[in-house]
Write a protein that binds this DNA or RNA. Structure first.
Lengths: 149, 149
DNA sequence: ATTTCACCGGACATTCGCATCCGTTGATAC
DNA sequence: GTATCAACGGATGCGAATGTCCGGTGAAAT
């Protein structure tokens, strides 16, 4: 017992940071709980396979960004701050990562637009916009579902 | 002078690793050169804003993966190993990152499929497949173009 | 042949994301 | 009031990704 469990793997095009993935795992668990049910860090850690001490830190960031709410003491724990369908992935990513991805040039140029594009601008914009659309349109209500959209 | 120039920014949902971004910058420059023209590391570094010493290391990885070819000595440098339209982004990412993204569960489960899905499986698959499609269908011939596809 | 040039490749330094630890705070149970 | 519980938040450690350095190798110019 006390099996190490699957930590984040390293060195690969990952799309999401390890921390963001951890946040989504925990939120996915909370999304299927009864509304208002408080779940402790230790339980979330067990269900998600995320290191408990680190998960605690991630959850705190989500609380400070009003994605989660928390209560202390007996019967305490974490719960979603709103119904699952009103928590968008983009909010989660902003909370744990702070993603200024929207206007970032793949060439590192301070200004890069369709008017003054860098060589990578078109292909990079294509990928970036797709990702942002996904992050903005996906909510916690979409987890654990057969993907209808 | 000797201005630091825009290194990769940190802490954000990045989609690509810094190294992968560096590789694409350099390849984008080489893609618009005359076929067979050899470009030196120092010149690529200036044009792309990538630290020269590190870029040299990235370029070597691309050579060992047959994305680039290199020659030493006077008039030496790097050039694409093939025409731009035959170099897919996925090859580049595999060369510098080694991306086993294809079958990786966002919940860290050893096995996760549509038969035995984790809560995040549907939404995660959606994003992952979109990214892989982008990486496989985009080539160096697409850089610097108005994005027609 | 010698010099110069530019890639090669490994050793080394730095930075940052990931992870752990521990004392503090506030709420509940008794 | 006291004890217990669980979140809070700062300090610290670790390892991978990033970035630097330098001697070696082979090709071209003279």
């Amino acid at each position: 017992m006390a099996r190490p469990l699957p930590q984040v793997s390293t060195h690969s095009s990952r799309l999401l940071t390890g921390t963001a993935e951890y946040a989504l795992r925990a939120l996915a668990e909370l999304a299927v709980c009864a509304p208002g049910e408080m779940v402790r860090t230790v339980d979330l850690a067990k269900r998600t396979g995320v290191p408990e001490a680190y998960l605690a830190k991630v959850l705190r960031r989500l609380v400070s960004h009003d994605v989660l709410r928390a209560t202390k003491g007996h019967g305490g724990g974490f719960a979603l701050a709103r119904p699952p369908d009103r928590i968008r992935f983009v909010e989660v990513l902003e909370a744990v990562d702070s993603m200024p991805l929207a206007n970032r040039c793949a060439f590192g140029r301070p200004s890069c637009s369709s008017h003054d594009p860098c060589p990578l601008h078109p292909v990079w914009t294509q990928l970036k916009d797709t990702f942002l659309e996904w992050a903005r349109n996906t909510t916690l209500a979409d987890v654990g579902r057969p993907l209808v959209r």
